[in-house]
Nucleic acid binder design. Sequence first.
DNA 1: CTGAAAGCGCTTACAG
DNA 2: CTGAAAGCGCTTACAG
Lengths: 348, 348
Amino acid sequence: MTEKTAGIRDVAAHAGVSQTTVSHVLNATPHTRVSEDTAARVRAAAEELGYRPNRLARGLRTQASDMIGLVTEEIATTPHAGRIILGAQEEASRRNLTLAIINSVLNPEPEVDAAQIQAFLDRQVDGIIYATVYHDVIVAPENLRSRPAALIGARDSAGAIPAVLPDERAGAAAVVEMLARAGHRRIAFAASAEDVPATRGRLLGYLDGMQAAGLPSDDLVAAGTADARGGYRASLELLDRFPTAVFCYNDRMAVGAYRAAGERGLVIPADLSIVGFDDQAPIPDSLFPTLTTVSLPHYEMGAWAVSKLADLIHGKDEETLLAEHPTVLACPVVERESVAPPRLGSPE
Amino acid sequence: MTEKTAGIRDVAAHAGVSQTTVSHVLNATPHTRVSEDTAARVRAAAEELGYRPNRLARGLRTQASDMIGLVTEEIATTPHAGRIILGAQEEASRRNLTLAIINSVLNPEPEVDAAQIQAFLDRQVDGIIYATVYHDVIVAPENLRSRPAALIGARDSAGAIPAVLPDERAGAAAVVEMLARAGHRRIAFAASAEDVPATRGRLLGYLDGMQAAGLPSDDLVAAGTADARGGYRASLELLDRFPTAVFCYNDRMAVGAYRAAGERGLVIPADLSIVGFDDQAPIPDSLFPTLTTVSLPHYEMGAWAVSKLADLIHGKDEETLLAEHPTVLACPVVERESVAPPRLGSPE
DNA sequence: CTGAAAGCGCTTACAG
DNA sequence: CTGAAAGCGCTTACAG
């Protein structure tokens, strides 16, 4: 099954040159001149033998494995993790790097994470990405510091590791301003009762957006659990105050908001506009009408982490890199069908 | 940042023994006797220096990288891929193997897949898993044969690669039989119009279940697109024939079925029971009432593939392994709130 | 019970 | 322009 594959020695013999020359030609080693004639012979031999350099051997010699380790927290429970992995993997491929992954659980005991990371270090990974669901600040495992590292979805308590976060606050403000531009004045917010950074960021963004549009927000906020049931209950409460639009903390709450609207005989979007947050497949496209929402830059964060790591590995000045710390990526509004101007017309 | 780490040579010097002895002690090499005294000294030295074997170097020497490559097709678009990855990763960790991943696109051009796989081969992976969304038979990339391999979600046209598939037919039959046991006789099926194996398997399973329960299925099948809209339309059509339960091809169609039921003034599950397929988060828990459905063994298939590969790598007889080809894993029913006995009572 | 030596497949000063 | 030799950090016959 695993038939003997050609090594650099075979190529050298076949081309009638030394291993050194083969290496120089195939790697286009700088500051090295090889006659075009010899080079052609080497390439022909490599081609003919189907030679592929053994990257384990190369790594051992160059002390660079060209592997990046990605530790994802709870890939199982967060449906978004897939896009982080995808972004990281594609960026890695572009750079001829290989991505290895390990799943982790949210800091059950610090030693567990440390062990996972150690497994990567044993493999001589060139860098490590530690991806969490959105946390404010985490205490990075000690041994994460022994290699170039990047954090997704959290900042390091020591502030020493480059990090990337979604700009949820600006995304929330943007969708509120979009509603305001559509003519809405009474825009309610179905907030989350969970104590996580996203709760604060999205609420703050809602307030920012209302303020930017010169709209009052008193009495237009109600909180619920961050699921369909919580969205249903919060929306019922909110609908008593006659908003023309409801912005939900997340798409799952928006599912509940749709139901609440239906019970009150409100047609979306004619009688009530609804927007969500997360762009969590398959919710937005499964709803009638489809849900306008705000998306999280998971793919982009994954790709960002790999580029940052590549820069770090190749010795770009870390001082400069940390200056912009933490990096924040936009959460774009994804327009679908659940928003329309309010029925009563523009209030001006 | 990357301070010099201790090597086996350092441990040997520190313990006053040879590298050979250190290796023997730390690896517990069979057929080798080392005095307990010496062994203790070696372990103490290793501990003190924080020695970790370099697995790149070990791999080069032993010709085993202890890495497994996972090629996933369209991890981006299938929300389930995450669980395949998780299953594979956790099983790999249990076996002290590392999982590297590459995303692929559904056979855009065969060369692309081959290149992805080549990247893994260059890394000397010990085995490769090729995971697809559910296909009947695929033509495996040529170079997949050069190492132990396993297929998830498809069979190889040559039938030479161990494969694992979900038993969708049996899962569908099981949920239909469950409905029959609850007293339903008119169980409709909202089928998919897509031409994929799952379409056939689930329909066949429905028919199996109806037959096993001695129920007629004429006129109780309607097809639609495999999304909420298609489920809505198919259900509307089906409801004209007064079923007491609707089994939907997938959870997204079930979303549409809920809406159709709502429009007809039917309360779920009192007036109408609905079940889906896929257990696709976050749908089942977002619906009112929560959706009883059938889950796909993604985690199990990922784990299965890694174990199979490990067996192959360690030389278990491939003949035996292929005998059971392809392996089929159960799709268990996940009971939630959307099923109840029919209003009109048992028909007997 | 222990160790000297070879070698996995590469890259890279260094010499010519 | 080209090559001989060392060495990355391990494991493993083999010898004693």
